[in-house]
């Protein structure tokens, strides 16, 4: 078994909700991430999927300590991230980088590409002043940008090119883990493919471990070795990428898979779609028992009472549903 590079143990990130103006008091808690256990092996790509509001971005930010988790342990290599001082954290962050969703918002509009890419190198004393320009050129070439564009500002680039700059910035300090939060959802299909290819290439080149967050299962399938499906702050199913797509066990994953539109008119006509009813419930006041039960096609009275835990359902495959054996896999041929 490969070496574990990152391990999450019962990670919880809760946000207090206040109401009142003069008599301000806490009236509830948003359980954005609620008890996540996860590990990432060296060189592995883990996909994290779920609807908006399920806590996937909060989890990403908790891993990078941008939003420190309220409970649980995050073990990165030999360090426990929770109890590091900000000085120590700064060192660890060189090894743990993030790419954000919106390349229009994540780059400073007043900094040229050179400034953006040189900043991490200078801040961490990774370069001598006279070599900086050389190192920035190398970085730009790695992500497929011409170094001639070094003195340009973000607004002069297209969305795909900006995302390349963001990737270059994440790679500048040679990290071992990259957390990519929906890096392609704001891009067009043809550009999406370019960025996905770039990420796969860099992953091999730099021996990166990647946590890849997306709401689109077909994108995640492409880049990930394993996929974890999140619903309302919890992981409901996790397993090998192909296995999750072809043989989903949890009713929620099954609905997600069936909701992907297939670009093929014949198959699209023949397909029976399980359309989920309603919207995801509020994480302030999640339903009792299994939080998916109000939208689940197979829910029984039991489901409202018992909170299911992740249990193995096959090789490298676990799901959190108490009726898994009765449900089987309706989408299987």
């Amino acid at each position: 078994m490969a070496e574990k590079i990152l391990e999450l143990e019962n990670v919880k990130t809760h946000f207090p909700v206040y109401s009142g103006f003069i008599l301000k008091h806490q009236t509830g808690t948003v359980k954005a991430v609620d008890g996540v256990n996860l590990h990432l092996e060296k060189g592995e790509a883990l996909g994290l999927v779920g609807e908006s509001g399920c806590g996937k971005s909060t989890l990403a930010r908790s891993i990078t300590q941008l939003i420190p988790p309220t409970d649980g342990v995050i073990q990165f290599k030999d360090k426990t991230l929770n109890d590091l001082s900000s000085e120590q954290l700064k060192k660890v962050r060189t090894d743990l980088q993030m790419i954000f969703q919106d390349p229009y918002a994540s780059l400073n509009p007043r900094m040229t590409v050179f400034d953006t890419l040189a900043e991490p190198l200078i801040a961490h004393n990774r370069t001598k002043r006279k070599n900086t320009s050389q190192e920035v050129s190398t970085l730009m070439e790695k992500v497929g940008l011409s170094p001639r564009l070094m003195r340009k500002y973000p607004h002069e680039f297209s969305g795909g090119q900006r995302q390349r700059i963001a990737i270059a910035r994440a790679l500048a300090l040679n990290p071992s883990i990259i957390v990519a939060d929906e890096p392609v959802s704001a891009l067009d299909v043809s550009i999406q493919a370019q960025i996905l290819n770039l990420l796969s290439k860099l992953r091999k080149e730099f021996d990166l471990s990647i946590i890849f967050i997306a709401h689109d299962l077909s994108v995640v399938k492409h880049i990930s070795d394993r996929i974890a499906v999140m619903y309302l702050g919890k992981i409901v199913e996790i397993g090998d990428a192909i296995d999750i797509i072809e043989n989903p066990r949890h009713p929620y994953t099954q609905a997600l898979v069936s909701a992907i539109p297939v670009p093929d008119p014949e198959r699209e006509k023949a397909r029976k779609r399980t359309v989920l009813l309603g919207d995801p419930p509020s994480p302030i006041n999640p339903p009792s028992g299994c939080s998916f039960h109000p939208r689940c096609l197979y829910a029984t009275e039991e489901c409202a009472k018992i909170t299911p835990a992740l249990a193995p359902t096959g090789k490298n495959h676990s799901a959190a549903c108490i009726r898994i054996d009765e449900i089987g896999n309706p989408s299987a041929p």
Partner: peptide, 10 residues
């Protein structure tokens, strides 16, 4: 979201 997209398309 994909699940809501499916609802709206139907």
């Amino acid at each position: 979201d994909v699940t809501v997209q499916a609802q709206i398309l139907e």
